[in-house]
Amino acid sequence: MAITLPDLPYAQDALAPHISAQTLDFHHGKHHAAYVKNLNGLIDGSDLADKSLEDVILAVAGDASKAGVFNNAAQIWNHTFYWNSMAPNGGGAPTGALAEAIDRDFGSFDAFKTAFAQAGATQFGSGWAWLVAVNGKLEVRKTGNAETPLTEDGVTPLLTMDVWEHAYYLDFQNRRPDYISTFLDHLVNWEFASANFAAV
């Protein structure tokens, strides 16, 4: 069964003015769609063709001969997770168990925001900033290119922010720190992160 491009979980203009419809048109409709097309071409007729996206990623992670498959599959998964990590009228602060865990593991919500923003700002080149749960404890991580915490035992992704330039360049040009602060203040979907944390 072919891997398909998931729909955005909101209208293309729903994140404006923070992220424009034009950015989502290019980012989802061109970049994300290209990863789907590329992956289907790479796995067609192989023993990976009938696997789920997650199983494809896990099957080829660390295999240099399958780097193209991994990069496209992981980028599909990371992007889908990223779309869900944002919401119209997002931002603010989490509540409930996730808020308590952030205070426990980072010292305060502001300290978490600082750590998350730093991870995004210091990821050299393309990549991702993540909030993850590691055996129940929260950590901020950053990964380069298509790398994903999905491949690490005991690590559960809760939230991600795309820091590839195509995620923000049409709206923020080279001002990655402005994009990061906008993501945290106006876009982050704490309900999604909380649901992921509850499922750990």
Rank of each mutant, 00 (worst) to 15 (best):
Ala59Pro: 04
Thr122Trp: 09
Glu152Ile: 01
Ala111Gln: 10
Val60His: 01
Gly96Lys: 02
Lys66Val: 04
Ala119His: 03
Val60Cys: 05
Ala74Met: 13
Glu139Pro: 05
Thr122Ile: 07
Ala146Val: 07
Gly144Ala: 10
Ala93Asn: 07
Thr80Lys: 12
Trp77Ala: 06
Asn145Glu: 11
Met161Ser: 01
Thr151Asn: 09
Gln75Leu: 14
Gly136Asn: 06
Thr80Arg: 11
Thr160Tyr: 02
Ala167Cys: 15
Asn78Pro: 03
Asp55Lys: 11
Val60Met: 00
Asp55Trp: 09
Asn78Glu: 06
Pro157Leu: 02
Thr151Glu: 03
Val163Trp: 12
Val60Glu: 00
Ala129Glu: 03
Ala97Arg: 14
Thr80Gly: 09
Ser85Ala: 02
Ser126Pro: 15
Val140Cys: 04
Glu147Cys: 05
Phe124Arg: 12
Ala133Leu: 04
Asp63Arg: 12
Asn135Tyr: 14
Thr80Gln: 14
Pro94His: 01
Leu131His: 05
Ala74Lys: 04
Ala121Asp: 10
Phe70Cys: 09
Asn135Cys: 13
Leu150His: 07
Arg141Tyr: 03
Phe116Gly: 03
Ala99Ile: 10
Thr148Phe: 00
Val56Gln: 03
Phe112His: 00
Phe109Gly: 07
Thr122Cys: 12
Ile57Ala: 01
Gln123Trp: 06
Gly96Gln: 07
Trp130Ser: 00
Met161Leu: 11
Ala133Cys: 10
Asp153Leu: 11
Gly154Thr: 10
Trp77His: 10
Asp63Val: 10
Lys137Trp: 10
Ile57Tyr: 03
Met86Gln: 01
Phe106Asp: 01
Gly91Glu: 07
Gly136Gln: 08
Val69Trp: 09
His166Cys: 15
Glu100Arg: 15
Gly144Asn: 07
Ala101Thr: 02
Asn145Gly: 14
Phe81Asn: 05
Ala101Leu: 04
Ala73Glu: 05
Met86Glu: 05
Ala97Val: 14
Gly62Ala: 04
Pro149Trp: 14
Pro149Met: 08
Thr95Asn: 09
Arg141Asn: 09
Gly91Cys: 13
Asn89Asp: 15
Leu58Cys: 11
Trp128Gly: 03
Ala67Thr: 12
Gln118Arg: 14
Ala119Ser: 06
Ala119Asn: 03
Asp55Thr: 15
Ala119Leu: 00
Gly154Trp: 10
His166Thr: 15
Ser65Phe: 08
Gly107Met: 06
Gln118Ile: 07
Ala59Trp: 07
